[in-house]
C-alpha cells in the first residue's frame, strides 16, 4: 500500500508504471485521476486545497486498508495533493490491483467515494471576482450508502 499526501505535482504515468511493475499474480489494474475543473465561465484562477495534516494520512490509510481487505486486493495506491492548483492540474490519483477486474473497479470506486466525503480536504475556488469554498454535494454523501 502506498499513500502520499503532498504539495508537489506527481507524474501519473510513472506512478502507474511503478505500481504495475511491483505487482505479482495480479491481472487487473484500475486507475483514476482527478483534475482541477474550470468554472463554466472559464474564470477559475486557481483552486486552493486545504487539509488536516495530522488526520489525512491516517484516514487515507484506513480507507485503503479496508479496500485491501474487502476486495482481497494485491495493492492500492492513493496520492492526493494540497496547495494551489490551476485548471487541469492533477489533484489526485487512485490505483488498485486485483487478480480480476471487478474487484479492482469496485475498490477504486469505494476509495473515491470515501476520499470525496470522508478524507479531510477542503477546496476553495479562487476566481477573478472572489473566492468560494466548494460545498459538499448530497449525492457524494449518499454514494457512501452503497458500501
Amino acid at each position: 500500500m502506498l499513500i502520499r499526501v503532498q504539495k508537489e505535482a506527481f507524474d501519473f504515468s510513472a506512478e502507474v508504471e511503478n505500481f504495475t511493475q511491483i505487482q505479482r499474480g495480479m491481472g487487473a489494474i484500475v486507475t483514476f485521476s482527478g483534475i482541477v475543473r474550470d468554472t463554466p465561465d472559464g474564470d477559475l484562477k486557481y483552486m486552493e486545497i486545504e487539509h488536516y495534516p495530522g488526520m489525512t494520512q491516517a484516514a487515507l490509510t484506513d480507507f485503503a486498508q479496508t479496500a485491501l481487505d474487502r476486495w482481497s486486493l494485491g495493492d492500492a495506491l492513493v496520492i492526493h495533493r494540497y496547495g494551489s492548483l490551476k485548471p487541469n492540474d492533477m489533484i489526485m490519483m487512485v490505483a488498485t490491483a486485483a487478480r480480476h477486474r471487478v474487484a479492482a473497479f469496485e475498490a477504486a470506486e469505494y476509495l473515491m467515494d470515501y476520499l470525496k466525503s470522508r478524507a479531510p480536504f477542503w477546496k476553495k475556488e479562487v476566481k477573478q471576482d472572489g473566492a468560494i469554498w466548494v460545498e459538499a454535494k448530497d449525492h457524494d454523501e449518499t454514494a457512501l450508502n452503497r458500501w
Partner: peptide, 10 residues
C-alpha cells in the same frame, strides 16, 4: 478537537 465543514476531497 477539530471543527470543519463537510469534506470535499477527491
Amino acid at each position: 478537537v477539530a471543527f470543519f465543514p463537510p469534506m470535499t476531497g477527491g
